[in-house]
Nucleic acid binder design. Structure first.
Lengths: 240, 240
DNA sequence: GTTAACGACTATAAATACAATTTATATAGA
DNA sequence: TCTATATAAATTGTATTTATAGTCGTTAAC
């Protein structure tokens, strides 16, 4: 069994625990490991072809990241994410994204801005093509925001924002499914880049706040519909 | 060798890795483990009377928290915190503390507010007594902010803010040493509580922003002085 | 028929053993 | 004396073993 089956960078060394960590995380975020599902060390060790030690160490990091919860002597479970928690995360993201866009508009170099504009155009192109799949759209959207994050020159902020964004991957499909939403996104991205090009900090902040607010509404509307669909069967009410 | 030598709650079960985790974290935050210092698994295992396994798992969490950095095949080191990173953290805290105070002013119950007032008065009393030690002052200050955090009703926000605050423990002495600063703190706390009592969200936000800004200035001034003092002796420069 | 106790089974927690890699030191040669 | 290379010591990375807790099923007693 090969050394780094799931490795990303073949050239540089990566401890097994890191390989396991990114593998498990990806599976959780993609929904391949569902909320509530047990993570059994022996099974995972067999599946991934490693011993239990790197599995355990990877689980520690996932636990600290909030993607799994530990019950002592009972093992690890993929954490459920409630409606409440999703909105909590979105509220934090709004504050930090506003901070990020301000710093980015202030500190990004002209070269960075060109890159941002390119990312924006790439996203727009994907939206205009009807055959683009959701994964590609999501990645293009992610790339756009990544460039802004990198432009903040605040590594801790980048780390926290990436972590928060991860928490929402599981819901990403919800707000990229609708084609009308995509048009809105294109529009918002475009005006955000423009504000940065103009170095207009206040306008950039205002637009980003709007951008997240729209995401908030879109996701919650989608969840309302999903919950309502589930409730016609007479199911009990879960979220807030 | 006893089971939980460093345990905090004798009654409830705590995995060894958790005991090790809180122990190491406390040592780092208190400065007993200094930035750059190596964390050698075998030594730590011997000192704490456990095997390497819980040590390693604790280190994974510290790594994820940013308190230690791993170099592959070279082990773990207590992370240096640069001037830049400190300011990065403070900038994030400012955004999130403003969010927190807004939510707190909105959602805190009357009972919560009474508790906050009590914490504020306790802090004031400690400042007026000249014999109070820095640790007690720090804890009183921490308690004050804790009540605000709890009032936000946003668990993720609480978690992130606590984490950010931890990063600054190592600098806490710097801004509590000066007695003038303490008077300012008393004043700021008092007016913040008042704004919450009045449910004046905008005022509360403004005051909190000011509060963090002052902290920013105080800490940086203290670090300027420390660096300048360190340099006159010809000693080597550590900082950013 | 229901409930409680006992025991086997399963999974995690911790310890230990083994392998691979890095670094430091010593020695030899220029 | 300085440099390069080889060897040994130290340390991390991974696997395996042992111990302990928890669960589920069976059985016996009421």
């Amino acid at each position: 069994m090969g050394r780094n089956d799931a490795a990303l960078n073949p050239e540089e060394y990566m401890p097994l625990r890191e390989v396991v960590f990114v593998t498990l995380r990806r599976q959780i975020l993609r929904g391949e490991l569902k909320p509530g599902e047990r993570l059994m060390e022996i099974s995972l060790a067999n599946e991934l072809g490693v011993s239990r030690t790197p599995i355990r160490e990877a689980i520690r990091k996932l636990e600290h990241e909030g993607l799994v919860v530990m019950i002592p002597r009972r093992g690890a479970h993929v954490s459920e994410i409630t409606r409440q928690e999703l909105n909590d995360v979105l509220e934090i993201r709004r504050s930090l994204d506003v901070l990020a866009i301000r710093r980015a508009a202030e500190f990004m170099t002209e070269k960075d801005i060109l890159e941002l504009r390119a990312a924006e155009e790439a996203f727009t192109l994907l939206v205009e093509r009807k055959d683009a799949d959701l994964t590609a759209l999501g990645e293009a959207d992610e790339h756009f925001h990544d460039i802004i994050y990198q432009g903040t020159n605040n590594r801790r902020l980048i780390q926290i924002l990436n972590n928060l964004r991860e928490q929402m991957y599981r819901f990403r499909v919800e707000y990229l499914k609708d084609t009308d939403i995509r048009q809105t996104l294109v529009h918002e991205h475009n005006s955000i880049v423009k504000a940065i090009e103009d170095r207009n900090l206040e306008e950039a902040e205002r637009l980003m706040k709007l951008h997240i607010d729209n995401q908030y509404r879109t996701i919650n509307r989608a969840l309302d519909m999903r919950d309502a669909a589930g409730k016609t069967t007479g199911g009990k009410h879960a979220g807030q």
